[in-house]
């Protein structure tokens, strides 16, 4: 009877185990996986194919772009995509669908869908197409000034970003510089490669550029755009070292004092009761406890020895 009950129990356990294993299979994800071709020129996601895109000008993800990240390839590199999965990034490589390719091609040729102004710290705000047109296509006869690029290195500037139709990538078309209280615009798209570094950013190492002085009527609109930069990057907050010991001279002294105090309490005072009990109990004729209490005294002694060793060895 008992053997039959055990058989029923084992059978029930085996069924439960089988169900558990099968049910994990049933929870299979139906999402397709990201796969990269062997030559890394194509990225696949289900039926979607992204092709490697090498932009002529560097691309910037604009401040209000929404994107997903951390899909993993087989080799654990992450794939970051924009929210409607037209663009995907693997490291510094850009992969785009056919729709994305045409959008980026138009962007590279100077036909942006919208424009943004971006500060040196990454804050950006949208500007009107009219203002962008006034910047990129100045009036005939507008005043110009030739600058040595080294003079502009410390000047405050705002990058004019052309943004493609999906609102994800921006391309630096030029920049507005504030120099000696005057606003100047330099159109990057008209400059040769010698003005840019290996990352495609404007270089202040050498060379001269011609900048257009902005007319007075543009300036209020430009200043309004400066104030209206609502997409700001997360500010770095320095929490400081409150509550932590900073290994400087004074803090190290206080760390050493605190550690010594702690070791005296936890390493020397705390084991004393154990040591006393372990030594006194076996010798107590009245109580008559056995000798195994000496083991407790031995452990307490070892405890104190380790604490003393720590106090000696700590620098």
């Amino acid at each position: 009877m008992k053997r039959n009950k055990m058989k029923i129990l084992y059978f029930a356990l085996a069924c439960i185990l089988l169900f558990s294993v099968l049910s994990t299979v049933a929870l299979a994800s139906e999402d397709p996986a990201w796969e990269l071709s062997d030559d890394e020129t194509e990225l696949y996601y289900g039926s979607k194919t992204f092709t490697l895109y090498e932009p002529y000008f560097p691309l910037t993800i604009v401040g209000d772009a929404v994107y997903s990240y951390d899909y993993a390839l087989d080799d654990y590199r992450s794939v970051d995509t924009n929210h409607n999965a037209v663009y995907a990034e693997v490291g510094i490589l850009h992969y785009v669908t056919e729709e994305g390719t045409s959008a980026l091609d138009r962007l590279m040729e100077g036909e942006a869908s919208s424009y943004m102004l971006m500060s040196q710290h990454g804050a950006c705000g949208e500007i009107s197409d009219a203002l962008a047109a006034k910047l990129t296509r100045p009036e005939k006869g507008a005043e110009t000034r030739t600058f040595d690029v080294r003079d502009l290195e410390d000047a405050l500037y705002y990058t004019l970003l052309g943004v493609e139709s999906y609102g994800f990538y921006g391309c630096a078309y030029g920049a507005v510089y504030l120099y000696e209280s005057e606003y100047y615009y330099i159109h990057y798209m008209d400059l040769g490669n010698q003005y840019f570094d290996s990352y495609g950013n404007f270089s202040y190492r050498r060379g001269t550029v011609e900048a257009v002085k902005l007319s007075a009527e543009i300036i209020p609109e430009l200043q309004y755009a400066e104030k209206d930069m609502k997409y700001r990057p997360l500010e770095y907050i320095d929490l400081g070292d409150n509550g932590n010991f900073d290994p400087g001279t004074d803090d190290l002294f206080s760390a050493r004092s605190a550690f010594s105090t702690g070791m005296v309490f936890f390493g020397i005072m705390a084991p004393i009761p154990f040591l006393v009990i372990g030594l006194v109990f076996p010798r107590s004729h009245r109580k008559g406890y056995p000798k195994y209490w000496y083991i407790l005294a031995g452990v307490a002694g070892l405890w104190m020895l380790l604490a003393i060793l720590l106090m000696i060895l700590v620098p």
Partner: peptide, 15 residues
């Protein structure tokens, strides 16, 4: 007490 008087100071001293 152990955290304040042993672990944290030891962390600073180990540096």
């Amino acid at each position: 007490l152990g955290l304040v008087f042993v672990v944290l100071p030891l962390g600073a001293l180990l540096a």
